[in-house]
Amino acid sequence: MDIIVTGLLLGGTYALIAMGLNLQYGMARIMNLANGEMLVAGGFAAFWFWTAAQVSPLLTVFIVAPVAFAANWLIYIVFLRPLVKRARSRGQLEVDSILTTFGLSFVSVGLMLAVFGGDYFSYSYLSFPVHILGDSYGANRVAAFVSAVIICGALWLWLDRSRAGLTIRAIAVAPDSARLVGIDVGKMAALAFALGGAVTATGGALISTFLTLDASTGVMFTLKALIIVIMGGVGDIRGTIIAALALGLLETFVATLIDPGLTLAAAYLLFVVILLVRPQGLFGRRTT
């Protein structure tokens, strides 16, 4: 039972991270492989505010999110917009953006190594137990889960109900037709990309309350987020949440029952199965 609850708690936070990547890949059409570094940066910020000024990570989020939004918006404008403009086909853009975001990812790992060093960092925040269904869990995990649920819910409402959300969904479904009905696709894509980065950094700040991070763990989270996004279906918020919970459960099962060193291997196997059985994602429709 405690495996299931721990898995769901972990999955909730994964959902937030994957949601960020899904905004970037599904809506802005940029495969951002530097996504995990944004997460680690968010975690670093939370760590720094907590150790320097005892600011709660749940409050740091309100600083991290706008800063990450601005940073990602700049990244889109400076690095990615020129690629979008010069690309002759979707495939070309894909290759270029993969190489660029790999480059950005390595650059940020290098910078974080230079600034913070290669040490693991963790801090103890809300590290008292909470009792759920007879078992006890770290309060930080529960707090992170609750915050993730609130943010995911707000995001979903915004995408589903607001006019801006509708526009973003429009550019995800048909960028060419969106332009015909008067949507500034470039501007909305930049917005979706920046928002995705902000969501991921927030997830990083939350996840740092209970996981130990270091400057080079970003790529692990990028891989996990990608697996979740592909499993749930690109651009599909509902699928992302379910896939994230599934991955959280699977990892917790493997870590407690077999070996904690195999969590990524398990996630990868899941990915292989998805690729072979349903490459369009859990709820995706076959496009070709």
Partner: peptide, 11 residues
């Protein structure tokens, strides 16, 4: 700084 070098090379 080899990581940084990799990143800059990609760009």
């Amino acid at each position: 700084q080899t990581t940084l070098l990799l990143g800059v090379s990609f760009l």
